[in-house]
Design a binder for these strands. Structure first.
Lengths: 193, 193
DNA sequence: TACGGTAGAGAACGATCGTTCTCAGCGCAA
DNA sequence: TTGCGCTGAGAACGATCGTTCTCTACCGTA
C-alpha cells in the first residue's frame, strides 16, 4: 500500500515537514541544518542526498506549503454554499487558520522578506504561490458575478489580513477582511433582484 | 548650527541609515556587521559604542524607518484636499513608494517575518509601528465620516498592497487598493446629498 | 615639552553554520 | 563463508559571524 512511494519518499516527506515546522516557527536562517537533522531524525548525509542543499530544502518546504494551502482553500470553497459564499469562504479559512496555535503569518511572505532578494529560487516559489492564490480568488469572484478588478482587491484584503493578524496578534482581522470583501463583491456585482 | 547634535549623533545617524539600506535590500541576517562598518565608514569599536549590539542596531533602524514613514504619510495627507482625499492620499503615497527603485516591500513586515519570533525587541518595534499606522488611518477615516471598522478594512488594504507589490513586482496594486478603499469608505459614509 | 590616559581601528577570538569527508557496517555475490 | 562495494552517521572542515581585545595615536594637563 505504498502506491509507488519508496522509503526515500517517506524520508523526504518527514524531512520537509520537520524543516517546515522549524522554518515557520523561527525564521529560515535561524534554523541550522543540525536542528533540522535532529527534528527529522534523518542524518546530514541523507539530507543532502535527498535535497542537495539548504536552499533546495527551503524551496521544497515552500512547494509543500503551497500545495497544502491550495488544497485547504479548495476544500473550504467546496464546503461553501453558493458562489458568493465560496468567495467569502477564503476568509472563513483564514479565520480558522489565524486562531491556530503557532500561527506566525504567511510562510511565503516571511520567506520572501528574509530571503527574497538573495535567493532567486525562493523568490520564484513565493511568486508562483501568490499568483496561484490570485488566480484561485479570481475564479471564485468571476463565478460569483464579480469583476477581475474586484478579485484583485479581495486578494489584497486576504494578504493584508495575514500580516496584520501575525503582527497584531488579533486573530479576528479575518472577519474584518471578510466583511470588506463582501462589501467589495456586492459593489462589483450587479444586483439580480 | 548643530542644535544640540554632537559628532556622535551624526555618526549614529550615518550608521543607522547605512544599516537601514543594507538590511532592507538584503535581509537583516544576510548583512554582517563588517558590511555595515564598511557602508557607514564607522569602525566596529565605535559602532558597538553607539548601539551596543546588532539587535539594538536593528531596533534603531526600525524606529528611524517608522518616523520617516509617519512623516511622509502626514505630509501626503497635508497635501490632500478634503477629508476623503486625505484618506486616499495613503494610497497615493504607497503608489509613489512602490514605483521607487529598490522597493522591497514593507521593512517592518520583512523584519517581523525574519526575526519576529526570536527577537522580542524587533517584534515590539514592528507592532508599535503598525499600531501607529492603524491609528493614523483611523483618524483620517473618522474625520472623513467613516467608521473605525472601515478604517481597519482600509488599513488591511494598505498592508496587503505592500506585500503584493513587493512579491508580484506590480507597482500599480496601490491604485487597486486605493479604489477598493474608496468603495469601502463610501459604503461606510452616510451620503450627504 | 613630556607623560599619562582615553578613545578608537581593525585583527582576532570563540561560536555557529553549510557542506564534505572519513570510517564503519551491512548486504550481496562469488 | 569471505571479500568487496556501497550507503549512511556524524565529526570535521573551512567560512562567516557578532563581539571583544590589543595596540596605537592623539589630546590634555602639568
Amino acid at each position: 500500500m505504498t502506491s509507488g512511494r519508496t522509503a526515500d519518499d517517506e524520508l523526504r516527506e518527514r524531512l520537509v515537514e520537520a524543516a517546515d515546522d522549524l522554518f515557520y516557527a523561527r525564521g529560515i536562517q535561524a534554523v541550522g541544518m543540525d536542528a533540522v537533522r535532529e527534528a527529522a531524525g534523518v542524518s546530514l548525509k541523507k539530507i543532502y542526498a535527498l535535497v542537495g542543499s539548504k536552499d533546495e530544502l527551503v524551496v521544497a518546504v515552500l512547494r509543500r506549503r503551497a500545495r497544502a494551502l491550495q488544497e485547504a482553500l479548495e476544500a473550504s470553497a467546496d464546503r461553501a454554499g453558493d458562489a458568493r459564499a465560496k468567495v467569502l469562504s477564503v476568509f472563513d479559512f483564514l479565520d480558522a487558520w489565524f486562531c491556530e496555535p503557532g500561527f506566525r503569518g504567511c510562510g511565503f511572505i516571511n520567506a520572501f522578506g528574509e530571503l527574497g532578494s538573495t535567493t532567486p529560487a525562493v523568490a520564484d516559489a513565493v511568486r508562483r504561490q501568490k499568483a496561484a492564490f490570485r488566480e484561485f480568488v479570481t475564479e471564485l469572484v468571476v463565478a460569483a458575478g464579480g469583476t477581475p478588478q474586484a478579485a484583485v482587491q479581495i486578494a489584497l484584503l486576504a494578504e493584508g489580513a495575514q500580516t496584520t493578524a501575525a503582527i497584531s496578534g488579533d486573530p479576528h482581522v479575518a472577519r474584518e477582511a471578510g466583511a470588506a470583501a463582501a462589501t467589495l463583491l456586492d459593489a462589483a456585482t450587479p444586483a439580480t433582484v
